[in-house]
């Protein structure tokens, strides 16, 4: 009884709230202010902190360039370049592998059951602990691991292949495995939303499959590609488990370096390293945006999601 009485009231209330929000121009400024307070301000504080120094485990609040000079003099800044190089490489590998897979899954005539199984296999890893998923590779890739046992058992190699574990190859491999779902799922969603009639029309107008891919599917899937790149690049830049467990200490990335500085309570070094990565990331995203513009309009391509 009560629900039937309150339902019409709710029906009236929601449109009224929507109407009020659209007439007052408060929403966008409110979100911007909140964003500024919880995201931008901490980054500014981080940047300011990088101009302090540490003495006997305590931060010395006197502006100086010591931390930044130390960062470059000791060669520590190289860790940021290495991290970027590995993160970008992993992201590109993911993109090359994920796009065809997503295309096949969305438009390749896969049955509903097959699609459900694939999506389940892609999402299940999210529910498992990253360390547990990564550490099993050590038993597989180690000197006395499964791969080396098979290689030596079949006579393909005489001695264990050492670079399978505790190397950059192993770190790349571990990251590619763990970051495949964040890349493939947004691309799959975007391609899945493309109206089949658009692809049919392209074909009817005489376009080759390559032309359809390049001029129809690729531009319309850009939002998914961009999202996939961001979802993949972000965690790759912050990767900590894979370099720690599969790199064997030989692949020192930004997170490892920050953790080490943190253990000595060197907050200004942590801040400088983080600030440096943010600056490099801004440059990278700007470059990515310019490249994406060549294929379409990344900003307006979100319109496809309305379909």
């Amino acid at each position: 009884m009560q629900t039937s009485a309150s339902a019409p009231a709710d029906d009236r209330l929601l449109p009224r709230i929507g109407q009020w929000l659209s007439t007052t121009n408060l929403v966008v400024p409110a979100i911007l202010v909140a964003w500024f307070a919880i995201v931008i301000v901490p980054i500014i504080i981080l940047f300011v902190y990088s101009f302090f120094s540490t003495a006997q485990f305590r931060t010395v609040y006197e502006p100086s360039l010591d931390t930044w000079i130390g960062l470059f003099e000791s060669g520590r800044w190289e860790v940021t370049l290495r991290t970027l190089r590995i993160a970008v490489t992993v992201t590109l590998i993911e993109l090359v592998g994920a796009f065809p897979f997503a295309l096949w899954l969305a438009k390749g005539g896969v049955s509903k059951g097959g699609r459900a199984v694939c999506l389940a296999l892609l999402t299940i890893p999210f529910f498992l602990d990253m360390s547990s998923r990564t550490i099993v590779w050590r038993a597989i890739l180690g000197q006395s691991g499964l791969v080396n046992t098979v290689l030596m058992g079949t006579g393909l190699t005489d001695a264990p292949v050492e670079w399978l574990l505790y190397s950059e190859v192993a770190v790349h491999f571990g990251m590619v495995v763990s970051l495949f779902p964040p890349m493939v799922l947004p691309i799959y969603m975007a391609i899945n939303l493309i109206d089949d009639s658009l692809i049919e029309a392209s074909k009817d107008l005489g376009a080759s499959p390559w032309q359809t891919l390049r001029r129809v599917i690729l531009p319309l899937s850009l939002p998914g590609v961009m999202a996939g790149v961001v979802f993949c690049l972000g965690p790759a830049l912050a990767a900590w488990v894979e370099p720690g467990m599969l790199g064997g200490g030989f692949v020192n990335l930004i997170s490892n370096s920050i953790e080490s500085a943190y253990s000595a309570l060197r907050y200004p070094v942590v801040a400088a390293l983080s600030a440096f990565v943010i600056l490099l990331l801004l440059v990278l995203l700007a470059a990515m945006y310019l490249i994406a513009r060549r294929f379409g309009d990344p900003a307006s391509s979100f319109r496809v999601l309305r379909g």
């Binding site: 000791s74 860790v79 020192n252 370096s257 080490s260 500085a261 000595a264 060197r266």
Partner: peptide, 11 residues
Amino acid sequence: AMEEEWQRFMN
């Protein structure tokens, strides 16, 4: 200083 030099070794 020790942490900085250790990072040089790590890198």
